Amino acid sequence: MDILRGIRVVNLALNLPGPLAASRLARMGAEVVKVEPPTGDPMECYSAAWYREMAVGQELVRLDMKTPEGQTRCGELLAEADLLITSNRPSVLTRLHLAWETLHPRFLKLCQVAIFGYPEPRGDVAGHDLTYQAALGLLYPPNLPRTLLADIAGAERAVSSALGLLYARERFGRSGFAEVVLSDAAAEAAAPLSFGLTRPGGLLGGGAPEYNIYPARDGFVAVAALEPRFRERLFASLGGVQTAGEISAAFASRDADDWEQLGEDLDIPIVKVRPAEGLA
């Protein structure tokens, strides 16, 4: 998919979600230059394989943005760019001369997506995916989350914001600026919990026997027969049972693989629950 062919992106964001967003834009055909400090991107230490995957097809440039030389070279890159992605706090953008108010008069065609943790006036407050989720009731202490929900949702917001800015520039001839706030992205992802759907006993939180996780003879199965047609097939395939207790007893009688195959055969969303360590 080369819908962004001819678009040049400079990504100064490290870790997540900026590099993930840049990777998505690169897969859409954009030419991406990834700017890292002399010490590199910490993501390479956290997960070298994921770091490499997100950087595929991109040009890597190492710059010390705290020096005049580094800022001069960055300015040369931005002069040829259509989009800049940053993930620094507002005060740091100002200090590095990367704030929109500073850049826009110099680079009139440049659009900017700035990723922040919190909206103003809390833009400089420190945060990470874990703390965004913790503040929204999305954790089950002491367990850590199995995915970086806010960062990945933020990456998707960064991509959609970038596409919107580029479209508006082509449509109206004006470059623009967009903020992506990770705490807001996490809050939007927490909406199913906020509105009660996934709370204990909620429709998707154990309140519907046709939408639950059940122990099989050798593991667990996830059952998502929420729509009437799926629910009717499920109940019929289990001999007409309908209560959570009856369904649980039925699923315990066979192996998880058997139930997954039955789901495929009858077009019912039934999947074996696989351990995280078995997905590598």
Rank of each mutant, 00 (worst) to 15 (best):
I3K: 12
N11S: 10
N11P: 02
G18N: 14
L20R: 12
S23F: 10
R24N: 03
M28A: 12
A30T: 09
V35W: 01
D41I: 06
P42Y: 02
E44L: 00
W50N: 15
W50S: 15
Y51V: 00
E53D: 10
M54C: 08
V56L: 14
L60V: 02
M65D: 10
K66I: 08
T67E: 07
E69F: 05
Q71L: 14
C74W: 04
G75R: 06
E76G: 10
E76C: 13
E76L: 06
L77T: 03
L77G: 00
A79S: 14
E80M: 10
L83T: 01
L83V: 15
L83D: 09
N88L: 15
N88W: 14
P90R: 00
V92C: 09
L96P: 03
L103C: 03
H104A: 14
H104I: 02
R106T: 13
L108G: 11
L108M: 13
C111L: 04
V113S: 09
G117D: 12
R122S: 05
A126D: 10
A126H: 06
A126I: 10
G127H: 03
G127T: 11
G127C: 08
Y132H: 03
Y132E: 00
Q133G: 06
A134M: 04
A134Y: 00
A135D: 06
P141R: 12
P142R: 08
N143G: 00
N143R: 09
L144G: 10
I152S: 13
R157N: 14
V159F: 05
L163P: 02
L165T: 01
Y167W: 13
A168T: 04
A168D: 04
E170N: 11
G173L: 04
S175A: 15
A178C: 08
E179N: 12
V180E: 12
A186E: 06
A186Y: 08
A187D: 11
A190F: 01
P192N: 06
S194M: 09
F195V: 15
P200T: 09
G202A: 01
L203T: 11
L203Y: 00
A208H: 13
P209Y: 07
Y211T: 11
Y211I: 00
Y214S: 14
A216R: 04
R217C: 04
D218H: 07
F220K: 01
V221H: 08
V221A: 05
A222L: 12
A222K: 05
A224H: 03
L226T: 02
F230Y: 15
R233K: 15
L234Y: 03
L234P: 10
F235K: 13
A236G: 09
G239Y: 13
G245P: 07
G245L: 02
I247W: 07
A250P: 03
A252K: 05
S253N: 00
D265F: 01
V271D: 06
V273D: 03
G278R: 14
L279V: 10
L279H: 03
